[in-house]
Design a protein around this nucleic acid. Structure first.
Lengths: 205, 205
DNA sequence: GTCTATAATCAGATAGAC
DNA sequence: GTCTATCTGATTATAGAC
């Protein structure tokens, strides 16, 4: 009994993991496509192909579904950041991160949450995985920002926290949506335009 | 009869106008505070101090309420733009407009709509006042943008439309909310920080 | 036009069988 | 854990008296 139990458990857990991955993937897509308020739990269930009640066995609320999607994207960000060369110039790594964010957004994979929803905010703050990820990302980017400022690559007059927020805000930049809707520019062009305005500004140099 | 009718009508219309102004003002505040989805028609009615059914005598739907608020803010933008000196440098006028947008936002007077809601978008597109205002604002700013580019003040390599969208996007810039939430900066500091990153970029000059 | 009362619908969450 | 069926509450919108 004791010898087989772990194997069966592990298999069960793997199935569970796969199912939850499918759920989170669906949530991520729907959050990117229509946002939190317009996304319904029925839709999520339908997309995954399970009953709504089953969803609630995995996640206790709609807010927790959204939080799981945010944890997922935060993990991806951490993976990307950790894969960047430590020996590269901090400014280059920061540009690479912003480019990654824009590409995720342009691919329709960036979940978007309403910034004013308080119950959602509470759920996120209570979510340890999310907060840990957010803090690690902030620390990594913050270190690069200060290094780039010390090297004279980023404007030293700007508070580092303001620069950090400016990067985070690219994940919900309406300019990307406006340009994408217009249909005049390719995804690559949009990426370069937003990167240019972000780092170089609108004024001539 | 004919001699008094216009007076009575005008008085009635003035009362109507005042009432509708109060409604739109409440909608504007609620849209700025909680956004379209979280705002309920009951709340609007309660804030104005009238019954919900009376609201629907003035505006046929929640979407039309929001559209009226957008028309209002667009009118304010037009008024501000028209008051700017024609002889000033285009770049200065553009900076003034962006500063105005940030101040309205920081004062909690900038209504925010979900960019993905299709019924709302349809209502806005069908709203002549809104579309006319939007186009006039775009034309005025567009002319200044092109002039500033010709003078070498704005980066000529950027498409004018991308610059215009970058300005519009300041009305829903999450950086403002992030910085405001942190509580480390005054409204004036936030305004100058965002203006700086917008026009001068993050990189050192 | 304003009100009270109510319809109609939708969506988040749960009960209980299997 | 998954399902069907249902509950519960909230919300948009309207009916009908005054």
């Amino acid at each position: 009994m004791n010898s087989v139990a772990p194997v069966k458990l592990s298999f069960k857990q793997r199935m569970l993991q796969v199912r939850e991955d499918a759920i989170i993937h669906a949530v991520n897509r729907l959050l990117a496509e229509k946002g939190f308020d317009a996304m319904t739990v029925d839709e999520v269930a339908a997309q995954v192909g399970i009953a709504k009640a089953s969803l609630y066995k995995h996640f206790p609320s709609k807010e927790d579904l959204a939080a799981a999607a945010m944890v997922r994207v935060m993990r991806r960000a951490q993976d990307f950041i950790n894969a960047l060369p430590a020996e590269a110039a901090p400014l280059d790594n920061l540009r690479a991160v912003v480019r990654w964010v824009l590409q995720v957004k342009l691919a329709g994979d960036m979940p978007s949450l309403p910034s004013q929803n308080s119950s959602l905010r509470a759920t996120l703050i209570d979510n340890r995985d999310y907060m840990d990820g957010l803090m690690e990302v902030s620390d990594r980017l913050g270190a690069w920002i200060e290094a780039a400022q010390a090297q004279g690559h980023l404007n030293p007059a700007l508070p580092a926290i303001a620069i950090l927020y400016t990067f985070f805000a690219r994940a919900c930049d309406s300019v990307v949506e406006f340009l994408q809707m217009g249909g005049l520019f390719s995804d690559e062009q949009i990426t370069e335009l937003v990167l240019s305005t972000c780092f170089d500004g609108l004024r001539a140099r």
